[in-house]
Each structure stands twice: as C-alpha cells, then as structure tokens.
C-alpha cells in the first residue's frame, strides 16, 4: 500500500527529482571578483530585501541574500585579503530541505532550492541546518520609508514577519525566460536568464546558466581546473561552483589558518576549537 508516509519519505529524500529540466548553476571566478559589492546591492534591489536599520544590523539581523565574505592571510606587511561572495548554494543534497517540517523549502524541477513563503511557519530549522549561513529569518515585518516602497519589484513577494527567506537564483527572471521560451516552443538560450548579481558584476566574475547544456558558458567553467565547491566534504552537492583565485600563496604563511584575529573572536565558529588549532594556539 502506497501510504502517505511512503510518499512523504520519497518526497523528503534529497534529490526527489532524479532529472532536472534545467540544472541552474552558478560559477564565481574568484580571480575576477574584486569584492566591490555591486552584486550585493543589485540583489537587494531585485529581490525587495528590506532596509533593516542600524540597530537591527548591529544585532546581526542583516538581510542580504548575497554577501561578500572576507578572509585575511598573513600579517603586516605581508597581509592579504581574500573575498568570496556567499549565497544560497542551491545544494542538490540540501540539508535544509530534509529539515523543514512543512516542506516550505524543497528542490524544484530545475534544481533550485525553493522557498514557499506561505508554507513557512518559521521554525528556523533550515537556517540551523544550513552550513553556509545563507538563510534569513524575518523577525519583524519590515517597512519602507515612503516613498521608497515605490522601488519595490512587482515580480517579487514582499515577505512578512515569521518567514524564512534566501537567494532564489532570481527565480522570477528564470520563470520569465522560461515563459518566453515556452511561447516560442524552444529551450531557454544560454545567458537568457541572468540573476541580478551576475548582470551587475563589473568584472564578469559571475556566470550563470544550465549545467544540462554541455555547451553553456557555465558548463565550460565547471571544467576549469580551478573549480571547487565550498564545504564540499559535507556532501551537499552545491550548485554554486567557485573558481579559485589564481594568486600565488603568500610565502612563509602556511600556518595562517591556525590563528584568528582576536577582534573577531565573538563570532568564532566551533571549528576554531578543533584539536589542531588549539594546539597551534597553545
């Protein structure tokens, strides 16, 4: 008997879809990325991200689906700063998807990690399960000082208190491109669907497209020897692929990873206290 429970189990299995109609993928070339944050503002503009204000921001309630992370190597005068844009990785084995009690987050037919706002009941479990820390919870119903609300994108839902949100790969743009392609009885052409971040990027560091198409620009990027995935060891199978920065490593700083800047210790991750690093600190 095919019970609801069986259906549920099947649905909950990561990779419910064994084949994706499109397999949207993003490649970020860290050798091109300068950390200028044009993408961050472009995302905020496209996706109706709220302005949370200074107080909330200081409380860590910033809402940025895409952020630039920064990591220092070495010390003065051989200090070096590295940037990496961090956003929802649209994992094909997404930890957040198996966590949601109401299936508000699920994998769609295009390989997108989708969030259904009006299913979400705000348990925030998904955010806890996400190793990339790219899910954002609406602790408040944010408002816009009039008439700033007039800039809101009519294609994107404005979220309310109690809802989890995150990068959608600009699904509204993807849907628009698919809609157009369907009307013309063809597949979406390479480059036709571009998320706001990729469109804005002044160094063309972000390439977006369909991994199912072997000739797409993003498929070619995946073959680059510099390609890697962040926290790949967690088997999340991200759909965001990074191309490693091609700078020569700083000479004489192999041990950098083992000491943190004191000033940032309030936000230290548990990794900091692994056996290896506590030895180095001691």
């Amino acid at each position: 008997m095919s019970t609801i429970r069986d259906k549920l189990r099947e649905y909950r299995t990561a990779g419910y879809y064994t084949e994706f109609e499109y397999h949207w993928t993003m490649a970020v070339d860290l050798d091109r990325c300068t950390g200028c944050e044009a993408c961050v503002v472009a995302c905020q503009a496209e996706n109706n991200l709220p302005i949370v204000g200074e107080k909330r921001m200081r409380q860590g309630r910033e809402m940025k689906w895409l952020r630039i992370e920064r990591y220092w190597d070495g010390d003065y005068p051989d200090a070096r700063l590295n940037f990496i844009p961090m956003l929802c990785q649209h994992c094909d084995e997404a930890p957040c998807e198996i966590a949601c009690p109401v299936f508000a987050t699920y994998h769609n037919q295009d390989g997108l990690n989708a969030q259904v706002y009006n299913r979400c009941i705000g348990t925030r479990t998904c955010a806890v399960y996400c190793p990339y820390e790219v899910r954002f919870f609406n602790w408040f119903t944010y408002t816009w000082d009039e008439p700033l609300e007039q800039q809101l994108n009519p294609d994107v839902t404005v979220r309310e208190k109690g809802v989890m949100e995150k990068c959608t790969f600009c699904v509204q743009r993807i849907n628009r491109a698919k809609d157009l392609a369907r009307d013309e009885d063809r597949r979406v052409a390479d480059g036709e669907a571009q998320p706001a971040c990729a469109q804005a990027c002044p160094t063309d560091a972000i390439v977006f497209g369909d991994r199912n198409d072997p000739d797409s620009a993003v498929s070619r990027k995946l073959e680059d020897p510099r390609a890697y995935k962040v926290l790949e060891e967690l088997n999340t199978h991200p759909s965001v692929v990074y191309l490693k920065n091609a700078r020569e490593p700083l000479a004489g700083h192999e041990d950098d990873d083992h000491h943190g800047e004191e000033s940032d210790s309030h936000a230290a991750s548990p990794v900091m206290w692994s056996e290896e690093s506590s030895e180095a600190v001691a």
């Binding site: 860290l30 200074e54 921001m57 200081r58 860590g60 910033e62 952020r67 992370e69 920064r70 990591y71 220092w72 190597d73 590295n82 990496i84 510099r226 890697y228 962040v230 926290l231 990074y242 490693k244 920065n245 490593p249 192999e254 950098d256 990873d257 083992h258 000491h259 943190g260 800047e261 000033s263 940032d264 936000a267 230290a268 991750s269 990794v271 900091m272 692994s274 290896e276 690093s277």
Partner: peptide, 24 residues
C-alpha cells in the same frame, strides 16, 4: 562602542573556503 560590523571570523581556520590548498 560596538561597531556595526557584519564580518565574523576573519581567517579561514583550515576550512578551505577559498579553495583546496595546494600541495606543499
């Protein structure tokens, strides 16, 4: 004062976030 600053840990702490380390 407490500054409004979003960055957490400023080192990768061996997490290879910036890519696999080259063989030394």
């Amino acid at each position: 004062v407490r500054m409004t600053k979003t960055s957490g840990v400023s080192r990768t702490l061996g997490r290879q976030i910036l890519g696999p380390e080259d063989e030394h």
